[in-house]
Write a protein that binds this DNA or RNA. Structure first.
Lengths: 140, 140
DNA sequence: ACAATATTATTTGTATGCCAAATATTGATA
DNA sequence: TATCAATATTTGGCATACAAATAATATTGT
């Protein structure tokens, strides 16, 4: 049926997973969205990143990051601070509240990533991720 | 690095493929977008479908289809016609112009689907799609 | 030093996509 | 038949996402 419809199959699988994550985050009482949690995770790893570094890390457009940070700032999860070394750029910092939210979200995301791993046959488990990475490189 | 980050890997692979398709459609002078082409393909297969059938076929929300059809109708690629058998619903029909656009878009999409297939190792080619389908079922 | 160029973030406009609520119509049931 | 539940579509609100245009600042070439 969908034997050769890679584009569509990839779309609906990603869509199903994404909607499931959103639902589980909500169910856990988490205020940030999936995209916003991506920002928090990057900052947890290395705080004070520039907008540019965040958009590169998440593989999304600069202008999209602006909106994500706007909403995260309104929720008091991050703060924009000027970068004295380069006044074009801005550095983003986690607030304590944001760090807390990040940890909570990470629990949910991790659980779902493990549930996904469980769905992938062992022989081709590595191959699945490798294929995704190969597609990403090929079409970027 | 991204060994266990299935959600993220799936997202960026889908995103890369999607953006590549959009670019190629544009490059071929095609006016419809990827999502809109999905509607055209369904109608090419069976014209006069109801909104509900389209949203089910594309696995997207009802309200999203309304917008897609709005734009396709503005471009004169489809027409809304009343359904005498059930006046709650509406049937969507391809115009000749829409049928033409559909064929053009299909050439591009088919080419990219084949390029994707070429990126998947032979042993796990079937398994890749099967995994996507399994994930879709599990999380829907 | 200065002009041309590049980089960083934002703004605006358009397109998805979801959800919840509103509307219209149909079907079922008391 | 009157009412209530189910179904189909639309509307409005919000959150991504990209592209193009803009403003501010840095860098580079001469």
């Amino acid at each position: 049926m969908s034997k050769d419809r890679f584009i569509f199959s990839l779309y609906i699988a990603q869509s199903a997973v994404k909607n499931h994550v959103i639902e589980e985050l909500k169910r856990a009482g988490i205020k940030v969205t999936l995209a916003q949690s991506g920002v928090l995770f990057l900052l947890e790893e290395a705080d004070g990143r520039k907008m540019k570094e965040l958009s590169a890390g998440l593989r999304i457009d600069n202008s999209t990051i602006t909106g994500l940070i706007d909403r995260l700032e309104k929720l008091k999860f991050v703060k924009r601070l000027p970068n004295p070394k380069d006044r074009r750029s801005i550095k983003i910092f986690l607030t304590p509240k944001g760090a807390d939210e990040s940890k909570k979200a990470k629990v949910v995301i991790k659980r779902i990533n493990e549930a996904i791993r469980a769905e992938i046959p062992d022989q081709c488990g590595k191959s699945f991720i490798e294929t995704l990475v190969r597609l990403t490189k090929k079409f970027s």
